[in-house]
């Protein structure tokens, strides 16, 4: 028999009375505020200590803004210096930046369309793959096998021309290009949905079977079990893998340039063709700017998803084994 001696018991009581455990995930650092994702509202500790609401705002983040500003300024200086040496043609870089930024906006718009649709479909298919009904599982399995095996370009291209054809012949639409691009984006979403279905499925499967049994024992209905017990855990567990997949989707939107979307890769290819006729160094300029823009988009997305991850974090829940 293991006896809890005096010191251990006293420590626990002290620990819980301090309220320290309440601030899990939003803990104070030595100097710089709470750290982690900022959640508005004071923690119990801050309230009990009587810290003013104004003081609990993340002022220290302004420091990072300052650092970012300083870095950009320095980077520009370095760039101009290198440009004066003749290696980096800043004027050219500046001239193409406007068009590339416009292309980046189009890419963002396309991404913003493709990702939600892909996730919705992927979630449904992934869920179907874990259903009790053999039929649902078969449909899900066929979907995943088909869309995973096809190159995205084939899907995009053919959906685009078939839809354009149908739009022109049967609906007598004047300019079928937007429909074509829309169809292409949709097929991109469906293609990515196949991968996301696998991720969602792995997430659902990683929730221990005991959870379902326990919910049953408590008396929850099947739907309540799914929505309140299984899905929250499965979702949190599959977030990192989903973030990865979203980043891949951003790159796949470049294929839409082939069917006429005026997005980043489209302009990039145009510039590259022209630049090579003039000077090899210009290609490096284009490459850096395009890469930076893609990194920026990807970074923003992964940062956002990491914030989602942090806000919904539950200690002890690890990433799913795929």
């Amino acid at each position: 028999m293991v006896r809890l001696e005096g010191p251990e018991v006293a420590d626990l009581t002290l620990f819980y009375s301090s309220g320290f455990h309440e601030s899990a995930g939003r803990r104070s650092g030595p100097v710089l505020g709470r750290g982690g994702t900022f959640i508005p509202g004071r923690t119990a500790r801050e309230r009990s200590k009587g810290v003013s609401r104004l003081r609990c705002l993340p002022w220290e983040r302004l420091a990072w803004l300052g650092v970012a500003g300083l870095t950009t300024y320095t980077a520009f200086d370095v760039l101009i210096f290198v440009g004066e040496l003749g290696y980096y043609n800043v004027a050219y870089g500046w001239s193409i930046l406007g068009v590339l930024a416009f292309g980046a906006q189009i890419t963002l718009a396309l991404t913003a369309t493709v990702i939600p649709i892909g996730f919705a479909v992927g979630f449904l298919v992934g869920w179907a793959r874990t259903a009790k009904s053999w039929f649902l599982r078969a449909i899900g399995g066929t979907y995943v096998e088909f869309f995973r095996g096809m190159p995205p370009l084939v899907l995009i291209f053919f959906s685009s021309i078939i839809v354009s054809l149908v739009a022109r012949s049967y609906f007598y639409v004047e300019d079928a290009a937007p429909y074509g691009i829309g169809a292409g984006a949709l097929s991109l979403a469906l293609h990515s949905a196949a991968y996301q279905a696998e991720i969602v499925r792995a997430g659902i499967l990683s929730v221990p079977a005991g959870q379902r049994e326990a919910a049953d024992a408590v008396g929850l209905t099947a739907w309540k079990t799914l929505s309140r017990v299984i899905m929250p855990q499965a979702f949190r567990v599959s977030l990192p893998a989903l973030a990865n997949e979203f980043a891949s989707e951003i790159k796949d939107t470049s294929l839409l340039s082939i069917i006429g979307a005026l997005e980043l890769s489209f302009w990039a290819s145009l510039f590259i063709r022209d630049a090579l006729a003039l000077d090899l160094n210009l290609v490096f300029v284009i490459w850096t700017e395009v890469a930076l823009l893609y990194f920026a988009i990807t970074f923003a997305l992964t940062r956002f998803l990491r914030t989602v991850e942090n806000v919904s974090k539950v200690p002890g829940l690890e990433a799913a084994q795929l």
Partner: peptide, 18 residues
């Protein structure tokens, strides 16, 4: 990181013209 962070489409055009 450069290869994995950029689409193949863009890499292809670069390599192609070059």
């Amino acid at each position: 990181e450069g290869i994995r962070g950029t689409p193949f489409y863009v890499q292809m055009w670069l390599v192609f013209f070059f």
